[in-house]
Design a protein around this nucleic acid. Structure first.
Lengths: 198, 198
DNA sequence: ACATTTCCGAAACGGAACGTACCGTAATCT
DNA sequence: AGATTACGGTACGTTCCGTTTCGGAAATGT
């Protein structure tokens, strides 16, 4: 990106590393919304110039820093799709160290909107919707359509997550048939397990 | 919030409505990250004072405006959990008009991070991860562990959404048993349907 | 009628942070 | 040696926030 290999003083690779480390550190407290370039420069011990010469704006800066701590793991091959997919998704959490979980996929949503607006909307609206969902599941369980020990949180979070990801991130609407199929699949989830003390 | 019911001039209710409508309009183009108070004031034909007297900051302002266009629908009661849940989730989309879909649940993720950082991360990392996931599913289908016509996008989006919602929005980690159960449930999804022309 | 309280628009303000431009210096290539 | 580029530091101009002040008007209570 900044290795011109031409004449002139080459970019300090160690400084680049220091900058990206500083971004990660700043990202851990404050998230992306609280990321301040001058604070990154101060922590990295350099001027803002050195940062803007490498990265066009906050977006690519943060992306570069996060990207550095994300490791595309080995392709799992256990012989079972379930185990392969399990290993696949769990690489999100235990990616490099415990760092990645805090700054990588998690930070995607811990943005300005999520921290500023979502709490208020949750109080005034989404909480009531969640209650409706729980009531629906409880009623269905009473009719024997799903296990009485089914975990409402898991089912409803999976539905909310799909909606959030498709509509919010990808900007695609979800067809009714897709919704119906996913719902039917989630209702077949086994009963809630109790990994901790009851 | 601004109905003191005491002496003195009461707040202009029609102005409040004009402000919230202006917020919605501004939110439609630009999203939350591009929401400017002064532009809202200009569109509503009032001063910033009138806005800040009603709402403490951008967060509650945007939340109030969005909340106004979200309708907590009737509690569905079709007699079937699947249909009830289907009606439940579809109220997200066809909420008030088509407005809600653009400014409500969708805007939650179309925040600063999602628009600034996510595209870069997608290019440099998530795309490769998605390819791995597709490969895993394809291999499993070749072994007959799931239908060859299964929709990889739906399965992987549901998993990504669950992760995003739990870790990003709720800040909760997902237990391995939960992941395993959800994966198993999603693999039982019926084959991809073709609602449009093939 | 009058005082009080609150609203309203307009304007100016201090502060924070952005991203840019310039400086003199240091490092590297031809 | 000379050209070229990176570096830290500093100073900018800009944007936007959220606050404050001001003059005037509207609603309420006595």
């Amino acid at each position: 990106m900044s290795s011109h290999d031409g004449p002139g003083r080459p970019a300090d690779a160690e400084l680049t590393a220091r900058i990206l480390d500083a971004v990660v550190a700043e990202l851990e407290d404050g998230g992306y919304a609280g990321l301040r370039i001058e604070r990154v420069a101060a922590r990295a011990g350099c001027g803002k110039t050195a940062i803007y010469r490498r990265y066009a704006d906050r977006g690519v800066l943060a992306a570069a820093a996060i990207r550095r701590h994300l490791v595309l793991g080995e392709m799992p091959d256990t012989g079972s799709v379930v185990d392969d997919l399990l290993a696949h998704v769990e690489q999100n959490q235990a990616n490099q160290a415990q760092n990645a979980a805090r700054i990588g996929f998690s930070s995607v949503a811990r943005s300005a909107f999520a921290s500023d607006v979502f709490p208020h909307l949750w109080e005034s609206f989404f909480a009531a919707r969640r209650d409706q969902g729980v009531a629906i599941l409880r009623r269905g369980a009473a009719r024997g359509e799903l296990s009485a020990d089914a975990d409402p949180d898991l089912i409803l979070d999976a539905l909310a997550g799909l909606t959030l990801y498709r509509q919010g991130v990808k900007g695609v609407t979800i067809a009714r048939e897709e919704y119906r199929d996913v719902i039917a699949a989630l209702l077949r989830l086994p009963p809630r397990r109790h990994p901790l003390a009851p």
